[in-house]
Design a binder for these strands. Sequence first.
DNA 1: CAGCCACAGTAACATTTGTCACACGGACAA
DNA 2: TTGTCCGTGTGACAAATGTTACTGTGGCTG
Lengths: 211, 211
Amino acid sequence: MSKETISIKKAFPNFSNDLIQEIEANSSFQTFKAGDVIMRTGQYIKNTILILKGQLKIYREGEDGEEFLMYYLQPGQACAISLICSTKNQTSQITAKVVEDVEAVTIPLALMDKWMMNHRSWYEFVIYTYRTRFEEVLEVIDNIAFRAMDERLEFYLKRHAKACGCKEINLSHQEIALELNTSREVVSRLLKKMEQRGLVNLHRNQIELLM
Amino acid sequence: MSKETISIKKAFPNFSNDLIQEIEANSSFQTFKAGDVIMRTGQYIKNTILILKGQLKIYREGEDGEEFLMYYLQPGQACAISLICSTKNQTSQITAKVVEDVEAVTIPLALMDKWMMNHRSWYEFVIYTYRTRFEEVLEVIDNIAFRAMDERLEFYLKRHAKACGCKEINLSHQEIALELNTSREVVSRLLKKMEQRGLVNLHRNQIELLM
DNA sequence: CAGCCACAGTAACATTTGTCACACGGACAA
DNA sequence: TTGTCCGTGTGACAAATGTTACTGTGGCTG
Protein backbone atom coordinates (compact mmCIF):
# COMPACT_ATOMS: atom_id res chain seq x y z
CA MET A 1 0.00 0.00 0.00
CA SER A 2 1.44 3.37 -1.01
CA LYS A 3 2.14 6.08 1.50
CA GLU A 4 -0.55 8.18 -0.08
CA THR A 5 -3.17 5.48 0.24
CA ILE A 6 -2.37 5.20 3.89
CA SER A 7 -2.83 8.90 4.52
CA ILE A 8 -6.12 9.01 2.61
CA LYS A 9 -7.36 6.05 4.57
CA LYS A 10 -6.34 7.71 7.77
CA ALA A 11 -7.94 11.06 7.03
CA PHE A 12 -11.06 9.57 5.44
CA PRO A 13 -11.69 6.32 7.25
CA ASN A 14 -15.21 5.98 5.86
CA PHE A 15 -14.15 5.86 2.23
CA SER A 16 -14.45 2.45 0.63
CA ASN A 17 -11.37 0.76 -0.80
CA ASP A 18 -12.82 1.07 -4.28
CA LEU A 19 -13.21 4.77 -3.82
CA ILE A 20 -9.73 5.27 -2.47
CA GLN A 21 -8.33 3.43 -5.47
CA GLU A 22 -10.27 5.70 -7.79
CA ILE A 23 -9.12 8.77 -5.92
CA GLU A 24 -5.54 7.69 -6.21
CA ALA A 25 -5.86 6.97 -9.89
CA ASN A 26 -7.45 10.33 -10.66
CA SER A 27 -6.16 12.85 -8.18
CA SER A 28 -2.94 14.70 -7.74
CA PHE A 29 -1.15 15.07 -4.46
CA GLN A 30 -0.28 18.63 -3.55
CA THR A 31 1.24 20.59 -0.72
CA PHE A 32 0.72 24.20 0.24
CA LYS A 33 2.66 26.48 2.56
CA ALA A 34 1.21 28.49 5.44
CA GLY A 35 -0.01 31.79 4.06
CA ASP A 36 -0.77 30.46 0.57
CA VAL A 37 -4.13 31.40 -0.86
CA ILE A 38 -5.52 28.28 -2.49
CA MET A 39 -8.76 29.65 -3.76
CA ARG A 40 -9.82 33.22 -4.26
CA THR A 41 -13.15 34.96 -4.72
CA GLY A 42 -14.08 35.13 -8.37
CA GLN A 43 -11.76 32.35 -9.45
CA TYR A 44 -13.10 29.42 -11.40
CA ILE A 45 -13.24 26.22 -9.48
CA LYS A 46 -11.74 23.28 -11.29
CA ASN A 47 -10.99 20.94 -8.45
CA THR A 48 -12.25 19.64 -5.21
CA ILE A 49 -9.71 19.53 -2.45
CA LEU A 50 -9.53 16.85 0.20
CA ILE A 51 -7.38 17.81 3.17
CA LEU A 52 -4.98 15.16 4.44
CA LYS A 53 -2.91 17.28 6.79
CA GLY A 54 -2.70 20.87 8.01
CA GLN A 55 -5.31 23.52 8.30
CA LEU A 56 -7.12 25.99 6.07
CA LYS A 57 -9.37 28.89 6.84
CA ILE A 58 -12.28 29.82 4.65
CA TYR A 59 -13.40 33.39 4.64
CA ARG A 60 -15.57 35.82 2.79
CA GLU A 61 -14.11 38.97 1.32
CA GLY A 62 -15.81 42.36 1.42
CA GLU A 63 -15.67 44.85 -1.41
CA ASP A 64 -12.88 46.83 0.20
CA GLY A 65 -10.78 43.80 1.03
CA GLU A 66 -12.27 43.22 4.47
CA GLU A 67 -12.13 39.62 5.61
CA PHE A 68 -14.70 37.67 7.47
CA LEU A 69 -13.92 34.24 8.82
CA MET A 70 -16.42 31.50 8.09
CA TYR A 71 -14.78 28.31 9.25
CA TYR A 72 -11.68 26.16 9.35
CA LEU A 73 -10.99 23.10 7.23
CA GLN A 74 -9.05 20.22 8.70
CA PRO A 75 -7.83 16.77 7.72
CA GLY A 76 -10.71 14.54 6.69
CA GLN A 77 -12.69 17.48 5.37
CA ALA A 78 -13.33 19.09 2.03
CA CYS A 79 -14.46 22.50 0.97
CA ALA A 80 -18.25 22.42 0.77
CA ILE A 81 -18.21 25.24 -1.70
CA SER A 82 -16.03 23.37 -4.12
CA LEU A 83 -18.33 20.36 -3.87
CA ILE A 84 -21.35 22.54 -4.47
CA CYS A 85 -19.98 24.42 -7.41
CA SER A 86 -19.18 21.19 -9.13
CA THR A 87 -22.04 20.95 -11.54
CA LYS A 88 -21.73 24.28 -13.24
CA ASN A 89 -18.72 26.28 -14.22
CA GLN A 90 -18.99 28.31 -11.10
CA THR A 91 -16.67 30.89 -9.67
CA SER A 92 -15.73 30.73 -6.05
CA GLN A 93 -17.61 32.89 -3.59
CA ILE A 94 -14.98 32.56 -0.92
CA THR A 95 -11.27 32.65 -0.26
CA ALA A 96 -9.24 29.82 1.26
CA LYS A 97 -5.97 30.53 2.99
CA VAL A 98 -3.53 28.03 4.47
CA VAL A 99 -3.02 28.36 8.22
CA GLU A 100 -0.74 25.36 8.76
CA ASP A 101 1.13 23.69 5.91
CA VAL A 102 -1.32 21.55 4.02
CA GLU A 103 -1.12 18.20 2.26
CA ALA A 104 -4.09 17.53 0.06
CA VAL A 105 -5.36 15.65 -2.94
CA THR A 106 -7.15 17.56 -5.65
CA ILE A 107 -9.83 15.90 -7.72
CA PRO A 108 -11.19 17.10 -11.04
CA LEU A 109 -14.76 18.23 -10.65
CA ALA A 110 -15.84 16.09 -13.58
CA LEU A 111 -15.56 12.98 -11.45
CA MET A 112 -17.83 14.24 -8.71
CA ASP A 113 -21.11 13.38 -10.38
CA LYS A 114 -19.94 9.96 -11.37
CA TRP A 115 -18.77 9.09 -7.90
CA MET A 116 -21.97 10.37 -6.37
CA MET A 117 -23.75 7.67 -8.30
CA ASN A 118 -21.22 4.89 -8.00
CA HIS A 119 -19.75 5.26 -4.55
CA ARG A 120 -22.01 5.18 -1.59
CA SER A 121 -19.27 6.36 0.75
CA TRP A 122 -18.55 9.37 -1.44
CA TYR A 123 -22.21 10.25 -1.58
CA GLU A 124 -22.47 10.10 2.18
CA PHE A 125 -19.36 12.17 2.60
CA VAL A 126 -20.67 14.90 0.32
CA ILE A 127 -24.07 15.05 1.98
CA TYR A 128 -22.44 15.09 5.39
CA THR A 129 -20.14 17.90 4.32
CA TYR A 130 -23.03 19.95 3.00
CA ARG A 131 -24.96 19.52 6.17
CA THR A 132 -22.23 20.29 8.65
CA ARG A 133 -21.01 23.33 6.74
CA PHE A 134 -24.48 24.68 6.37
CA GLU A 135 -24.96 24.36 10.10
CA GLU A 136 -21.66 26.04 10.75
CA VAL A 137 -22.60 28.93 8.53
CA LEU A 138 -25.93 29.24 10.31
CA GLU A 139 -24.05 29.51 13.57
CA VAL A 140 -21.92 32.26 12.07
CA ILE A 141 -25.08 34.11 11.10
CA ASP A 142 -26.41 33.80 14.62
CA ASN A 143 -23.26 35.34 15.94
CA ILE A 144 -23.21 38.40 13.76
CA ALA A 145 -26.98 38.85 13.73
CA PHE A 146 -27.73 38.43 17.39
CA ARG A 147 -24.57 38.98 19.35
CA ALA A 148 -22.43 41.97 20.18
CA MET A 149 -18.71 42.09 19.60
CA ASP A 150 -17.75 40.95 23.09
CA GLU A 151 -19.68 37.70 22.74
CA ARG A 152 -18.42 37.19 19.22
CA LEU A 153 -14.86 37.59 20.40
CA GLU A 154 -15.39 35.04 23.12
CA PHE A 155 -16.93 32.64 20.64
CA TYR A 156 -14.06 33.22 18.26
CA LEU A 157 -11.42 32.49 20.88
CA LYS A 158 -13.15 29.32 22.00
CA ARG A 159 -13.52 28.09 18.45
CA HIS A 160 -9.90 28.83 17.76
CA ALA A 161 -8.78 26.99 20.86
CA LYS A 162 -10.87 24.03 19.83
CA ALA A 163 -9.46 24.03 16.31
CA CYS A 164 -5.85 24.06 17.47
CA GLY A 165 -6.55 21.87 20.47
CA CYS A 166 -4.87 24.07 23.07
CA LYS A 167 -5.61 26.98 25.34
CA GLU A 168 -2.85 29.26 24.10
CA ILE A 169 -3.83 31.30 21.10
CA ASN A 170 -0.92 32.77 19.23
CA LEU A 171 -2.48 35.62 17.35
CA SER A 172 -2.00 39.36 17.48
CA HIS A 173 -4.97 41.58 18.23
CA GLN A 174 -4.66 42.87 14.69
CA GLU A 175 -5.16 39.42 13.18
CA ILE A 176 -8.20 38.77 15.32
CA ALA A 177 -9.66 42.14 14.39
CA LEU A 178 -9.32 41.25 10.71
CA GLU A 179 -11.18 37.99 11.06
CA LEU A 180 -14.00 39.57 12.99
CA ASN A 181 -14.04 42.56 10.68
CA THR A 182 -13.48 45.12 13.40
CA SER A 183 -10.50 47.21 14.50
CA ARG A 184 -7.51 46.34 16.61
CA GLU A 185 -8.38 48.89 19.27
CA VAL A 186 -11.77 47.31 19.81
CA VAL A 187 -10.22 43.88 20.20
CA SER A 188 -7.65 45.23 22.68
CA ARG A 189 -10.38 46.94 24.66
CA LEU A 190 -12.59 43.86 24.85
CA LEU A 191 -9.71 41.54 25.67
CA LYS A 192 -8.70 43.84 28.51
CA LYS A 193 -12.22 43.58 29.89
CA MET A 194 -12.10 39.82 29.57
CA GLU A 195 -8.83 39.79 31.47
CA GLN A 196 -10.44 41.83 34.24
CA ARG A 197 -13.25 39.29 34.37
CA GLY A 198 -10.65 36.56 34.73
CA LEU A 199 -11.45 34.85 31.42
CA VAL A 200 -8.02 35.22 29.83
CA ASN A 201 -4.40 36.09 30.50
CA LEU A 202 -2.83 38.40 27.97
CA HIS A 203 0.73 38.12 26.73
CA ARG A 204 2.56 39.44 23.74
CA ASN A 205 1.27 37.59 20.68
CA GLN A 206 -0.51 35.15 22.89
CA ILE A 207 -3.84 34.87 24.63
CA GLU A 208 -4.21 32.27 27.31
CA LEU A 209 -7.76 31.04 27.68
CA LEU A 210 -8.93 30.38 31.24
CA MET A 211 -12.42 29.18 30.29
CA MET B 1 -53.43 13.60 -15.85
CA SER B 2 -54.51 14.60 -12.35
CA LYS B 3 -54.69 18.18 -11.26
CA GLU B 4 -51.86 17.55 -8.85
CA THR B 5 -49.60 16.12 -11.52
CA ILE B 6 -50.15 19.23 -13.56
CA SER B 7 -49.17 21.57 -10.77
CA ILE B 8 -46.06 19.56 -9.92
CA LYS B 9 -45.08 19.59 -13.57
CA LYS B 10 -45.63 23.30 -13.69
CA ALA B 11 -43.67 24.15 -10.57
CA PHE B 12 -40.89 21.64 -11.26
CA PRO B 13 -40.56 21.47 -15.03
CA ASN B 14 -37.23 19.66 -14.87
CA PHE B 15 -38.55 16.64 -13.02
CA SER B 16 -38.81 13.52 -15.14
CA ASN B 17 -42.18 11.84 -15.62
CA ASP B 18 -40.97 8.84 -13.69
CA LEU B 19 -40.06 11.04 -10.77
CA ILE B 20 -43.36 12.87 -10.79
CA GLN B 21 -45.19 9.57 -10.71
CA GLU B 22 -43.14 8.48 -7.73
CA ILE B 23 -43.75 11.76 -5.98
CA GLU B 24 -47.45 11.44 -6.47
CA ALA B 25 -47.49 7.88 -5.24
CA ASN B 26 -45.55 8.69 -2.09
CA SER B 27 -46.31 12.25 -1.11
CA SER B 28 -49.22 13.96 0.49
CA PHE B 29 -50.71 17.19 -0.75
CA GLN B 30 -51.02 19.88 1.90
CA THR B 31 -52.07 23.48 2.22
CA PHE B 32 -51.01 26.05 4.78
CA LYS B 33 -52.48 29.43 5.66
CA ALA B 34 -50.59 32.70 5.80
CA GLY B 35 -49.05 33.03 9.25
CA ASP B 36 -48.71 29.28 9.85
CA VAL B 37 -45.37 28.12 11.13
CA ILE B 38 -44.51 24.97 9.21
CA MET B 39 -41.22 24.18 10.81
CA ARG B 40 -39.74 25.40 14.02
CA THR B 41 -36.24 25.46 15.49
CA GLY B 42 -35.57 22.31 17.44
CA GLN B 43 -38.31 20.26 15.80
CA TYR B 44 -37.50 16.96 14.20
CA ILE B 45 -37.65 16.98 10.45
CA LYS B 46 -39.63 14.14 9.00
CA ASN B 47 -40.50 15.47 5.59
CA THR B 48 -39.18 17.43 2.72
CA ILE B 49 -41.53 20.06 1.41
CA LEU B 50 -41.85 21.01 -2.25
CA ILE B 51 -43.64 24.31 -2.80
CA LEU B 52 -46.26 24.36 -5.53
CA LYS B 53 -47.83 27.70 -4.78
CA GLY B 54 -47.53 30.59 -2.34
CA GLN B 55 -44.55 31.81 -0.40
CA LEU B 56 -42.62 30.93 2.73
CA LYS B 57 -39.96 32.74 4.64
CA ILE B 58 -37.11 30.98 6.34
CA TYR B 59 -35.55 32.61 9.32
CA ARG B 60 -33.24 32.00 12.18
CA GLU B 61 -34.37 32.51 15.73
CA GLY B 62 -32.23 34.08 18.43
CA GLU B 63 -32.24 32.98 22.02
CA ASP B 64 -34.63 35.71 23.10
CA GLY B 65 -37.05 35.14 20.23
CA GLU B 66 -35.41 37.58 17.86
CA GLU B 67 -35.94 36.77 14.23
CA PHE B 68 -33.52 37.04 11.41
CA LEU B 69 -34.64 36.58 7.83
CA MET B 70 -32.57 34.26 5.70
CA TYR B 71 -34.52 33.82 2.48
CA TYR B 72 -37.84 33.23 0.84
CA LEU B 73 -39.08 29.97 -0.64
CA GLN B 74 -41.25 30.03 -3.71
CA PRO B 75 -42.99 27.60 -6.05
CA GLY B 76 -40.49 25.26 -7.64
CA GLN B 77 -38.27 25.33 -4.60
CA ALA B 78 -37.67 23.21 -1.55
CA CYS B 79 -36.17 23.89 1.82
CA ALA B 80 -32.46 23.17 1.57
CA ILE B 81 -32.30 22.49 5.26
CA SER B 82 -34.89 19.77 5.05
CA LEU B 83 -32.99 18.17 2.18
CA ILE B 84 -29.77 18.36 4.11
CA CYS B 85 -31.08 16.96 7.33
CA SER B 86 -32.43 13.97 5.48
CA THR B 87 -29.84 11.40 6.32
CA LYS B 88 -29.82 11.69 10.05
CA ASN B 89 -32.58 12.26 12.50
CA GLN B 90 -31.81 15.91 12.64
CA THR B 91 -33.68 18.72 14.29
CA SER B 92 -34.37 21.86 12.35
CA GLN B 93 -32.04 24.80 12.79
CA ILE B 94 -34.51 27.26 11.34
CA THR B 95 -38.10 28.34 11.37
CA ALA B 96 -40.37 28.46 8.31
CA LYS B 97 -43.39 30.72 8.27
CA VAL B 98 -46.02 31.05 5.55
CA VAL B 99 -46.19 34.48 3.95
CA GLU B 100 -48.81 33.73 1.29
CA ASP B 101 -51.09 30.69 1.47
CA VAL B 102 -49.07 27.68 0.42
CA GLU B 103 -49.84 24.52 -1.51
CA ALA B 104 -47.15 21.93 -1.17
CA VAL B 105 -46.34 18.25 -1.34
CA THR B 106 -44.53 16.65 1.55
CA ILE B 107 -42.24 13.72 0.98
CA PRO B 108 -40.97 11.30 3.62
CA LEU B 109 -37.26 11.75 4.10
CA ALA B 110 -36.68 8.04 3.72
CA LEU B 111 -37.22 8.32 -0.03
CA MET B 112 -34.63 11.02 -0.53
CA ASP B 113 -31.61 8.74 -0.64
CA LYS B 114 -33.29 6.31 -2.98
CA TRP B 115 -34.29 9.00 -5.41
CA MET B 116 -30.86 10.55 -5.34
CA MET B 117 -29.58 7.30 -6.80
CA ASN B 118 -32.43 6.48 -9.15
CA HIS B 119 -33.60 9.81 -10.49
CA ARG B 120 -31.16 12.02 -12.23
CA SER B 121 -33.55 14.97 -12.23
CA TRP B 122 -34.03 14.68 -8.48
CA TYR B 123 -30.29 14.54 -7.92
CA GLU B 124 -29.79 17.64 -10.00
CA PHE B 125 -32.56 19.44 -8.21
CA VAL B 126 -31.07 18.69 -4.81
CA ILE B 127 -27.58 19.76 -5.80
CA TYR B 128 -28.93 22.91 -7.39
CA THR B 129 -30.92 23.68 -4.25
CA TYR B 130 -27.88 23.23 -2.04
CA ARG B 131 -25.82 25.45 -4.21
CA THR B 132 -28.24 28.34 -4.59
CA ARG B 133 -29.20 28.36 -0.92
CA PHE B 134 -25.60 28.30 0.16
CA GLU B 135 -24.90 31.25 -2.08
CA GLU B 136 -27.89 33.08 -0.73
CA VAL B 137 -26.74 32.52 2.81
CA LEU B 138 -23.29 33.77 1.90
CA GLU B 139 -24.88 36.93 0.59
CA VAL B 140 -26.72 37.31 3.87
CA ILE B 141 -23.41 37.02 5.71
CA ASP B 142 -21.91 39.70 3.51
CA ASN B 143 -24.73 42.00 4.38
CA ILE B 144 -24.55 41.70 8.10
CA ALA B 145 -20.78 41.42 8.25
CA PHE B 146 -19.81 44.23 5.93
CA ARG B 147 -22.76 46.58 5.60
CA ALA B 148 -24.41 49.09 7.90
CA MET B 149 -28.12 49.11 8.58
CA ASP B 150 -28.99 51.64 5.88
CA GLU B 151 -27.53 49.46 3.15
CA ARG B 152 -29.08 46.35 4.63
CA LEU B 153 -32.47 48.01 4.63
CA GLU B 154 -32.08 48.99 1.00
CA PHE B 155 -31.06 45.47 0.11
CA TYR B 156 -33.98 44.07 2.05
CA LEU B 157 -36.50 46.28 0.28
CA LYS B 158 -35.12 45.41 -3.12
CA ARG B 159 -35.16 41.72 -2.39
CA HIS B 160 -38.69 41.96 -1.12
CA ALA B 161 -39.84 43.81 -4.20
CA LYS B 162 -38.22 41.17 -6.34
CA ALA B 163 -39.86 38.35 -4.43
CA CYS B 164 -43.35 39.82 -4.74
CA GLY B 165 -42.73 41.18 -8.20
CA CYS B 166 -43.92 44.71 -7.54
CA LYS B 167 -42.63 48.05 -6.30
CA GLU B 168 -45.15 48.49 -3.49
CA ILE B 169 -44.12 46.83 -0.29
CA ASN B 170 -46.96 46.32 2.14
CA LEU B 171 -45.16 45.96 5.43
CA SER B 172 -45.14 48.00 8.60
CA HIS B 173 -41.88 49.40 9.89
CA GLN B 174 -42.26 47.05 12.82
CA GLU B 175 -42.31 43.97 10.62
CA ILE B 176 -39.24 45.08 8.74
CA ALA B 177 -37.44 45.81 12.00
CA LEU B 178 -38.14 42.26 13.17
CA GLU B 179 -36.70 40.68 10.07
CA LEU B 180 -33.56 42.78 10.20
CA ASN B 181 -33.28 42.31 13.95
CA THR B 182 -33.32 46.00 14.77
CA SER B 183 -35.93 48.37 16.20
CA ARG B 184 -38.87 50.10 14.58
CA GLU B 185 -37.49 53.56 15.32
CA VAL B 186 -34.30 52.80 13.47
CA VAL B 187 -36.25 51.60 10.45
CA SER B 188 -38.44 54.72 10.52
CA ARG B 189 -35.37 56.93 10.75
CA LEU B 190 -33.59 55.28 7.86
CA LEU B 191 -36.69 55.16 5.67
CA LYS B 192 -37.19 58.87 6.25
CA LYS B 193 -33.65 59.50 5.07
CA MET B 194 -34.27 57.34 2.02
CA GLU B 195 -37.39 59.35 1.27
CA GLN B 196 -35.36 62.55 1.47
CA ARG B 197 -32.89 61.03 -0.96
CA GLY B 198 -35.80 60.29 -3.30
CA LEU B 199 -35.43 56.51 -3.13
CA VAL B 200 -38.88 55.75 -1.74
CA ASN B 201 -42.30 57.21 -1.07
CA LEU B 202 -43.75 56.41 2.33
CA HIS B 203 -47.40 55.66 2.97
CA ARG B 204 -49.28 53.98 5.77
CA ASN B 205 -48.41 50.28 5.66
CA GLN B 206 -46.80 50.71 2.30
CA ILE B 207 -43.42 51.64 0.95
CA GLU B 208 -43.20 52.57 -2.68
CA LEU B 209 -39.83 51.82 -4.19
CA LEU B 210 -38.51 54.38 -6.65
CA MET B 211 -35.27 52.52 -7.46
C1' DC C 1 -69.65 60.53 17.73
C1' DA C 2 -66.20 58.81 21.10
C1' DG C 3 -62.85 55.73 22.18
C1' DC C 4 -59.44 52.64 20.88
C1' DC C 5 -55.58 50.88 18.46
C1' DA C 6 -52.01 50.23 15.19
C1' DC C 7 -48.75 52.83 12.67
C1' DA C 8 -45.64 56.45 12.01
C1' DG C 9 -42.60 60.51 13.31
C1' DT C 10 -39.29 62.49 16.30
C1' DA C 11 -36.52 64.30 20.18
C1' DA C 12 -33.36 63.09 23.76
C1' DC C 13 -30.32 60.15 25.59
C1' DA C 14 -27.37 55.68 26.43
C1' DT C 15 -24.45 52.38 24.59
C1' DT C 16 -21.57 50.26 21.37
C1' DT C 17 -18.39 50.48 17.97
C1' DG C 18 -15.10 52.78 14.93
C1' DT C 19 -11.35 56.21 14.49
C1' DC C 20 -7.47 59.13 15.64
C1' DA C 21 -3.62 60.20 18.31
C1' DC C 22 -0.12 59.05 21.07
C1' DA C 23 2.73 56.52 24.60
C1' DC C 24 5.17 52.43 26.23
C1' DG C 25 8.03 48.40 26.02
C1' DG C 26 10.17 44.30 24.01
C1' DA C 27 12.80 42.38 20.20
C1' DC C 28 16.06 42.83 16.97
C1' DA C 29 19.50 44.76 13.83
C1' DA C 30 22.92 48.14 12.65
C1' DT D 1 24.09 51.39 22.56
C1' DT D 2 20.77 53.43 19.57
C1' DG D 3 17.22 53.33 16.54
C1' DT D 4 13.39 51.04 14.52
C1' DC D 5 9.50 48.03 14.25
C1' DC D 6 5.68 45.76 16.03
C1' DG D 7 2.35 44.78 19.34
C1' DT D 8 -0.23 46.69 22.94
C1' DG D 9 -2.76 50.04 26.03
C1' DT D 10 -5.55 54.03 26.44
C1' DG D 11 -7.93 58.49 26.21
C1' DA D 12 -10.81 61.39 23.50
C1' DC D 13 -14.00 61.86 20.21
C1' DA D 14 -17.32 60.64 16.18
C1' DA D 15 -20.85 57.92 14.29
C1' DA D 16 -24.23 54.41 14.30
C1' DT D 17 -27.57 52.10 16.63
C1' DG D 18 -30.66 50.97 20.51
C1' DT D 19 -33.96 52.84 24.00
C1' DT D 20 -37.42 55.65 26.11
C1' DA D 21 -40.95 58.61 25.87
C1' DC D 22 -44.18 61.23 23.83
C1' DT D 23 -47.11 63.05 19.76
C1' DG D 24 -50.17 62.79 15.92
C1' DT D 25 -53.10 60.54 12.60
C1' DG D 26 -56.10 57.45 10.30
C1' DG D 27 -59.28 53.78 10.52
C1' DC D 28 -62.29 50.86 12.84
C1' DT D 29 -65.89 49.74 16.16
C1' DG D 30 -69.09 50.17 19.81
